[in-house]
Amino acid sequence: MKSIVCVKRVPDTEARLRIAGDEKSVEAAGVKFVLNPYDEFAVEAALKHKEAAGSGEVTAISVGGAESAETLRTALAMGADNAVLLKTAGRAEGLAVARVLAEEIKGREYDLLLFGMKAIDDDLQAVGPMTAELLGIPAASAVTEFSVADGRVTAHREIEGGHEVVELRMPCALTMTKGAYEPRYASLKGIMAAKKKPLEEKAATAGDAGVETRKLSYPSERQAGRIVGQG
């Protein structure tokens, strides 16, 4: 079972964010970054299915700056076999990221292409289905659990008021949400081993995403309300 997992470096959920002077981006100084929590489900799913198959390979890929190498090391420490950093200058979003990923992935051999359902920074929920579309492969999003048999994936996808059972031809793309794959912690041994695993860096150019951020603002502070009852 060969899987490619796309992972992203995002600010920790507890991070206090400050808008930068350009009013279009967020100050990175003092912000703690982590592997996107949804991507942890994807890494875990890839590892579980490789273990179940008894053989295979898990490759983690990230698009971003040099700092994203750290995010890839986290995936390697969890158990991924190797990693690729597609190094871009400046920020890239949505369609631009999908294009960089598709360009790299189209020359590779894989059974499963896994994503997080969303990145918790801009919550776009787009890169997975977009990359699948560019590669011309079937995809399902918001997957909680899947099984693999006879070249097909049967995936359970969360929908309003229930779930959908989708059958996909491989190779296919899945975007993962919380469900059957509770992420493992990287063990000390895993962290040590990750330092020696292959992490390839390639220069990449992220183009136009088709949308631009014009302005970031803080939502109006909710006024603390009135206490209307005291029990």
């Binding site: 964010l17 808008i19 967020v26 801009d122 136009d208 995403a209 088709g210 949308v211 631009e212 951020t213 014009r214 302005k215 970031l216 603002s217 803080y218 939502p219």
Partner: peptide, 8 residues
């Protein structure tokens, strides 16, 4: 944060 976005 709130973001204002426009197509390019």
């Amino acid at each position: 944060l709130l973001s204002q976005v426009a197509a390019t």
